[in-house]
Design a protein around this nucleic acid. Sequence first.
DNA 1: CGAGCGAAGTTACACGTGTAAGTCGTCGGG
DNA 2: CCCGACGACTTACACGTGTAACTTCGCTCG
Lengths: 347, 347
Amino acid sequence: MTDPTGHEAVPTPPTSAAVARRAGVSRATVSYVFNGQAAGRVGAGAQARVRAAAEELGYVPHAAARSLRAGRGRIVLLAAPADTAPVFGPLFADFLAGFQSALHRLGYTGVLHGAPADAPLDAARAWAELRPAAVLTLHDPPLDASAVDLLKRAGTAAVLTPGPQAPPGAHALLLDQSEAGRRAGAHLLAAGRRRIGVVLPAEPGLAASADPRLAGVRAAAAGHPDAAVHPLDLALTEESAARLVARWPALGLDAVFAYNDAYAMLLMRALQDAGHAIGTGPGRIAVVGADDLLLARLLRPRLTSVRTEAIAPDRLAHLVDTLVRAPSTPPATHRLGTFRVVPRASG
Amino acid sequence: MTDPTGHEAVPTPPTSAAVARRAGVSRATVSYVFNGQAAGRVGAGAQARVRAAAEELGYVPHAAARSLRAGRGRIVLLAAPADTAPVFGPLFADFLAGFQSALHRLGYTGVLHGAPADAPLDAARAWAELRPAAVLTLHDPPLDASAVDLLKRAGTAAVLTPGPQAPPGAHALLLDQSEAGRRAGAHLLAAGRRRIGVVLPAEPGLAASADPRLAGVRAAAAGHPDAAVHPLDLALTEESAARLVARWPALGLDAVFAYNDAYAMLLMRALQDAGHAIGTGPGRIAVVGADDLLLARLLRPRLTSVRTEAIAPDRLAHLVDTLVRAPSTPPATHRLGTFRVVPRASG
DNA sequence: CGAGCGAAGTTACACGTGTAAGTCGTCGGG
DNA sequence: CCCGACGACTTACACGTGTAACTTCGCTCG
């Protein structure tokens, strides 16, 4: 309804036709100017008039019309399961910011969508409606084949999913979590620890990164016949930590590798409250976290942590761009980063 | 078929026309079925055939075509300045998740975009291209009038900006930060503290929430003639905290209210390392943070914190929906939440 | 003087959808 | 027996773009 009252609450957005009229040229000319195809087709004078008119009218091309015409849009969708979002630390936020600017520089609009993890197909449908150029999902388990299929059929050029193995048609983004485990394990073993606990978060949606980490610790321990690795469940509450610590003497562990610094801090505090000594010396329990949060350095002893050295966000953006331009590239695995132990006093 | 090579690298997305052909009806019928206008227009048989055909083809309506037709899309854009994103805590992530599901239930697609804070007009242009139904921005300073104007001219029905005062045409979302300051101040004053430091983050982009908090503490202190309030600059690094603590004796403060728990934890640790006693008793320094992070309860003494009681994300989603449906609603201020002190051992 | 050619534009169509307006039986009432 | 009403659809247009194909014009060269 175009508002016959003449009140015009929401003004009609200026179109390229309006710009063309104002500049005294045809609409095609405007289009050529705005898409860099002007060289050899449009004279300098007309070009200047078009730009001036666009500026005055506040013209912004209509992304919908553009993607309708192009068959696919310039949106890159980053999809994160809603329930794990709270667990993302500042590292992720930082990376996201860099990634989005890099995409912007390449002409894409990067956008984050937190979908409920329990209805992945619904979510995929919602994404497909946007006809994004690419979808990077952090869902875990990755995304089923039918969801990927739906997206591809909706014209999505590239679907990227956390590795190690992606559903058919999707690329894998590998942050080799087992490497984090291997590094932590090697570090603790080198320090002489032999009975190593590995904290697995009880929170949902994290198993896909937690399990490989456990496997990595096990792999590191494989070289030491006298070493033992114990999985430990822990939720992010003080009660859960207290329960775990109550079982501690029976477990007889001399080291822990926690899923991340938050779990590590929680557990370390609970251990200290129960009278256990934390640290590198003999008779002490070694504690290693992950993510290297600033806050984790505030506890005493300072927390040793496995730091993620992610690839530069620009590199990921370029990868996405490449895949979008060559949609038939056979799916491959792309490495997202590596891990490094930052040794401090806790273990 | 549309692909004479038969290779079909990227399949053509199924359209409503394809569904119509397969169901043996016209395209209009498909459209009516999918938009709930079927009652009294389309018979039960045809309706069933349409749905079946859509299912088989994996049909997803093209959001671009839809918003092209409708003049405005169903996207709700949440824009956060990229450089402050790392500072957002789990509270924000949680809220975001709830907000997006609520929007989904109302038929919108909520999406987060982290734009560089230094080029707000560029960012506004990028948003405008998406022709979103609504834009909620967390930018600070809010957004200049020209950016709001650009968005409105691009057909955005509602532009919401952090309060207290929004640029013309935009609604204000008020999380009254001065209330946080007032509550913290009142709490400390009631405990007998009179020389109160207020930590202002040195990180950019946070002044708009930090300054009102300081003002709130001052307002609370106004009732006590013997009370003094001191602003303190602090960056999120251990060196910065050490520098601040070095000046501490000269300041002679008996209480601090920090911008959030991260700053509070950092400062508290540095104070303790310098030999200061923290807590509620006489001779101790009272420390109050904000956000009530779990991790803040791991320090000893446990951190007293000002907790944000945000409105339910669904309420915000409904507000957005209302404003989108009635775009000519005169701009108003909408309250986003309130604050409450959670007293613990630190102050 | 005309053919040829490049520069500078324009015309015209396609993209996929929503919906107002039209069509075509069929059925009930007078 | 005819008219109007109604159910069940279909036809046709508009939304704003990008771009291939066409036109027009001035100029050069043979």
